[in-house]
Amino acid sequence: MAVEIAMTAAPQTLLQVATPALILDEARLAANVRRMDDHLAPFGVGFRPHVKSVKSPAVIRDFLGGAVPITVSTLLEARMFAEAGFNDILYAVGIVPAKLDAVCALAATGVRMQIILDDAGVADDIAHALAGRSGVTALIEVDCDGHRSGIAPDADDLLVIARTLAEAGVFGGVMTHAGESYACEGADAIAAHAELERSGLVRAAERLRAAGLACPVVSMGSTPTALFARALEGITEVRAGVYMFQDLVMAGIGVCRPDQIALSVLATVIGYQKTQGRLVIDAGWMAMSRDRGTASQRVDQGYGLVCDGAGAIIGDLVITSVNQEHGLVGNRDGTPIDLSAYPIGIRLRVLPNHACATAAQHTAYVLADSSGKVTAHYPRFSGW
């Protein structure tokens, strides 16, 4: 894949990058994007990537081919991507009236804004506030798996909310997020959950249409279900976010292999715990986050799986514990490391449990090719 670099830096290698640093493996990232594209192509559905993990318009533009329709989880993401030329945005967190002015301000600049809600009272408020205004439509969030928010496909309020929004001319359709897919394991289990998600959402859309309400958008998605869905009839678009980077939680449920994870933290060995046979690195929880998302999985990856400087996994080395700026690296089973194999100053790369949480600790990505040459620096933002 030819990548148009948005921000270039003087030629250098990872050996010259100050640590800790957030690294993107160019080849793995491109392969993850191709995998999603190839999987969804036969279904003929739209795709709306979620940018909450990336939080960098330049990365999305370069690796996804331009200012594509996107999903965001914060209004800051919406504003930053709108300023970068992205003009079709779904704000996929339940709207409240106090946030509507910010949404409408973006719509006034020519951005197509979609918001979501699951409450009849909020629907009344939104319908009143948006009456006579253009550029904003509302989707009803449907709960297909009891994960977090949304209303059941068969709930009476589905029709009540839709009619309220339709009478104001702002009803756009339905959406769902299969968050419980993260608790599945293996292709068959994930595919079954994808069908649960699809069928529940389509049932909601069919109820609305049977009641005489147009339902143009039927949007589903999570990285597991997007990559393992075997049928998408009735769905108009799919959403996914962490698929670009992948992480150890995704690897733990069989969505990817650890060697397909494109995101890592570059760290330096700065000392030893000689009595315990552990390495000390300059990447603690400020660089990795405190996320322990693999602790409940079959393989506990500690605070991250350790690789050599080229990105190759080193046996069962994991970060076993963290302080603010220190990480302790040991074998998963607690046996001592041969410390002589890791001289002070050597570089290591650590694969994260949760890509979103780890990336949130950093202000930029370093893009590197398979030889370790740095090919770009991409800024990223944080906040709400």
Rank of each mutant, 00 (worst) to 15 (best):
L196C: 04
A214I: 00
A214T: 05
D38Q: 15
L279Q: 02
E195Q: 13
T223L: 08
L117E: 02
V68L: 08
N323E: 15
A120M: 05
T74K: 01
V122Y: 02
Q301T: 09
V217L: 01
I337H: 05
I89R: 03
S222T: 15
L159M: 00
V72A: 09
R61V: 00
A138R: 07
A18N: 11
F43H: 07
G334Q: 13
P20I: 12
S321L: 06
A131C: 06
V255Q: 04
Y272K: 04
R239D: 00
A105P: 03
T375Y: 07
C104Q: 11
A123H: 03
Q260M: 13
E4T: 15
V217P: 00
N32H: 11
I346G: 01
D143Q: 13
E197D: 09
P379F: 04
L24F: 10
D25W: 03
I281Y: 03
G85P: 10
G150H: 06
A27Q: 14
L14F: 09
G172W: 03
N323S: 15
T268Q: 06
R112W: 08
L263M: 11
R292L: 14
V322I: 15
G146H: 09
L196V: 14
H193K: 14
V111R: 01
D118L: 11
Q12I: 14
D37N: 12
V280G: 02
K52H: 06
I344F: 02
I5L: 15
N87P: 00
A41I: 03
H50K: 01
S296R: 07
I89W: 09
V45K: 07
S134V: 12
T13A: 12
R298Y: 08
A131E: 13
A27L: 05
D124K: 09
G311V: 03
C256V: 11
C144M: 13
A360P: 08
R257M: 10
R61N: 02
G304H: 06
M113N: 04
T320S: 15
T358S: 07
Q246L: 13
G110S: 09
V160M: 02
P336K: 10
E325C: 10
T19C: 05
I281L: 09
W384Y: 15
A251E: 13
E26A: 12
A192I: 05
I126D: 03
D37A: 14
K274F: 07
D282I: 07
G46T: 00
V3H: 12
V170E: 02
Y342W: 11
L248V: 05
A231M: 02
L266C: 04
A58K: 04
C307T: 08
F228H: 14
I346S: 13
F228K: 10
A92G: 00
